[in-house]
Amino acid sequence: MKIAIFGCGGLGVPAAWTLAAAGASELLLVDPDHVERSNLHRQVLYREADLGRPKAQALAEALQRRFPTLRVQTLQAQMDADSVRSALRGYDAGFEGTDDAAMKFHVSDAVIAARTDTAGRDAGARLACIAAAIGRRGQHFVVGPQTACYRCLFEAPPPPESVASCRIAGVIGPVVGEVGARAARALWRALHGRAEPARSALVRLDAGRYDRIAVDVAQDCSCRGGPGE
């Protein structure tokens, strides 16, 4: 299984660790940033020795130390809708764990574009998991070949200035770790057909309690809940 991971931070690190341990054959690690000391309390595969290094590269090395047969590609870049789509070509699934709300829509849109392309020209991933965490809260959502999409859940990205980031609201290290690990587990199980393909749910962790909200395809959503005609 080949999986592209967008964001090598508090969510991407545990997700990559989980997917590599589970047996993924190849990971693509995408992140434009460098390792800072304030990352280390929650991005626990980095070392003090990695401070100042590109995250994608440092994470690739940390994973290869633990999983010598894993293939890892890295991409140190800020992504947009087009580059997300092209990064997902040839991959089985995507994992979105950045702190950029627009990126979550880009990844969801790329899955929808791949699954509605009946001509088969788009070889992009048809499955993705989109995760987020802040404070003591987190959530994840799997977009699959027949599920609702991220736009069924939220119509459009909120304006960036309205989104609280962990730079402002903070985050507990093991909480974001748990959300990332559990989100990656959900993605891995969906990849192996061990999840209901047509149902999607927003799974939320809040102050130590989980709940799940079933998400139905929105009538007016452009994804139209599944492959095209």
Partner: peptide, 18 residues
């Protein structure tokens, strides 16, 4: 399986730290 282990490990750390 191995896909379950990080979820359990982070959960244990979260219970302890919180």
């Amino acid at each position: 399986g191995p896909e379950d282990a990080p979820g359990l490990g982070t959960l244990a750390a979260r219970l302890l730290v919180c």
